[in-house]
């Protein structure tokens, strides 16, 4: 009997550990909602969504999220232009072409690339890539811009896309490829007309996760993209992303409870919602490709 109650207690303790993860989510959502609601009692939602200026730290305050949103989207777009095509091709190469020996060298190196802290990538973007691009590009490139952090971020996300897409491609049954070969296709045709369509949901899941990662990425943009919220699609001028804004406010001492303090939670809310939607979508897609080829 005593052994039995002991077992029950132990199980309850483990259960408590498991529930703690729920509390994290509840905590995040509660904190964000609380500050967001009090923020919108002072600023109208319409202004927030339509005002073309974001100047909460100035005397003339404007609370339009559009400039931060455009900055985030611009950097994300540039990084995806690097990470998605490169990631797709490298994963295709690794899964369909590369000999085992090459894979064994490349995969750990990609893991190293993925493990480097983002602050180091930020250093690289600001002090190596930007000066390099300034020498190459004939038009004036500002010291802070979205092009160079975008490229470097693409480099950082590449391993994620590669490894997830490669997993999806390897899950495609050999028989499908063999059918393609039997019909007289070569490897390239099989890769593009059999493997990619068959692994499509897994590949798109990796793409979506990559976008979500780019939106939430902080240090590279905080260091190399600047701190000037501006509604532009020009990659050569300084911009500010949502994450960089949170860093900017956190570095100063903004007293709790003020409107400026609340803005970081509102921006955090926008960030959380957009990444959550993408993550859930990606999770669903990945589950689907697992179900198809089991």
């Amino acid at each position: 009997m005593r052994a039995h109650t002991r077992e029950k207690w132990i199980q309850t303790a483990f259960f408590a550990c498991a529930v703690l993860s729920i509390f994290t989510t509840v905590g995040i959502v509660a904190v964000l909602i609380f500050e967001t609601v009090t923020f919108f009692s002072e600023v109208s939602l319409v202004d927030f969504l339509t005002d073309r200026e974001w100047t909460p730290l100035f005397a003339d305050k404007h609370f339009g999220i559009l400039p931060l949103l455009s900055g985030t989207l611009l950097v994300t777009l540039i990084s995806m232009l690097v990470a998605l095509p490169c990631g797709l091709l490298t994963s295709l190469y690794l899964s369909e072409y590369a000999p085992e020996a090459v894979r064994k060298i490349i995969k750990p190196l990609l893991e190293v690339l993925a493990g480097i802290p983002t602050v180091v990538y930020g250093y690289f973007a600001l002090l190596f890539v930007t000066p390099l691009l300034q020498n190459i590009i004939p038009i004036h490139l500002a010291g802070f811009n979205s092009l160079s952090p975008g490229i470097v971020m693409g480099m950082m996300i590449l391993p994620l896309v590669t490894s997830l897409s490669e997993d999806a491609m390897r899950a495609v049954p050999m028989s499908l490829r063999e059918a393609g070969f039997a019909l007289g296709s070569n490897r390239l045709q099989v890769s593009f007309k059999v493997v990619i369509p068959a692994a499509f949901s897994g590949i798109s899941a990796s793409f979506i996760l990559a976008v979500s990662r780019a939106i939430g990425e902080t240090m590279i943009v905080a260091i190399a993209a600047g701190q000037q919220p501006r509604l532009t699609m020009n990659p050569l001028v300084p911009v500010e992303t949502m994450t960089a804004y949170i860093v900017q406010v956190s570095l100063g001492d903004t007293p709790a409870g003020t409107l400026e303090y609340k803005t970081i939670f509102v921006v955090g809310m926008a960030l959380f919602v957009s990444t959550l939607v993408l993550n859930v979508l990606s999770h669903r897609l990945r589950k689907r490709f697992r179900e198809v080829y089991r």
């Binding site: 729920i22 994290t24 989510t25 905590g27 904190v31 609380f34 939106i215 956190s250 959380f272 993550n279």
Partner: peptide, 29 residues
């Protein structure tokens, strides 16, 4: 437990700066 499982998968993908906001509101304040 299924619900908790989905929850953990999602938590792993939440941007780290959001955890900073959580820490600021709960632990610091």
């Amino acid at each position: 437990s299924q619900l908790v499982e989905i929850n953990i998968a999602n938590l792993a993908a939440v941007p780290s700066i959001i955890y900073g906001l959580l820490g600021l509101a709960i632990f610091v304040r």
